[in-house]
């Protein structure tokens, strides 16, 4: 069975590189597709060319369409309604946490500044969402 890709929605190239690095370091084999803003993310998800991803790592503050809106549209549409979404962001403001969970985010992780902690967080979320967790049926 071919692994479904991971969709990383991240506009900051540094964060993108660090996240990719952390994923690689933890031997996560899934292909990682990067969307650099909300429009690219929605295009990947609803463009009809791609299977739904195994997991979406979603930043909140994004150009054009923000992460909250991406999440809203995902939860409103059938193929992505059940796709695991992990919010991966800098903010831990209550308003973002509430909005994220209200719209059905599966998890909310604040990116640690310490890269080692960040790597550990990515390791755990990869282990949990890609290996331990039983995904919804296709």
């Amino acid at each position: 069975m071919s692994l479904r890709p991971i969709l990383l929605v991240e506009d900051n190239p540094d964060d993108e590189k660090l996240t990719l690095r952390a994923l690689a370091k933890n031997n996560i084999q899934n292909e990682v597709v990067v969307a650099h803003d909300g429009v690219e993310a929605l295009d990947f998800l609803f463009g009809g060319r791609n299977p739904p991803p195994a997991i979406v790592l979603l930043d909140l503050k994004l150009p054009k369409i923000d992460g909250i809106e991406v999440l809203r549209q995902m939860r409103a549409a059938n193929p992505t309604k059940l796709t695991p979404v992990v919010i991966l962001t800098s903010s831990k403001e209550d308003q973002d946490l509430i909005a994220g969970y209200e719209l059905g985010a599966n998890s909310y992780i604040r990116k640690p500044v310490d890269f080692l902690q960040f790597t550990e967080a990515v390791r755990q979320l990869g282990l949990y969402w890609l290996i331990l967790n039983e995904p919804p049926p296709r």
């Binding site: 660090l18 503050k61 800098s90 403001e93 990116k111 500044v113 890269f115």
Partner: peptide, 22 residues
């Protein structure tokens, strides 16, 4: 302002820390 501080000031710090570690 606080929101953007919490969000935007941390991103470069992550880069500094992350790339130093790399």
């Amino acid at each position: 302002f606080s929101y953007s501080v919490s969000h935007d000031l941390r991103a470069p710090l992550r880069s500094i820390d992350g790339f130093s570690q790399l």
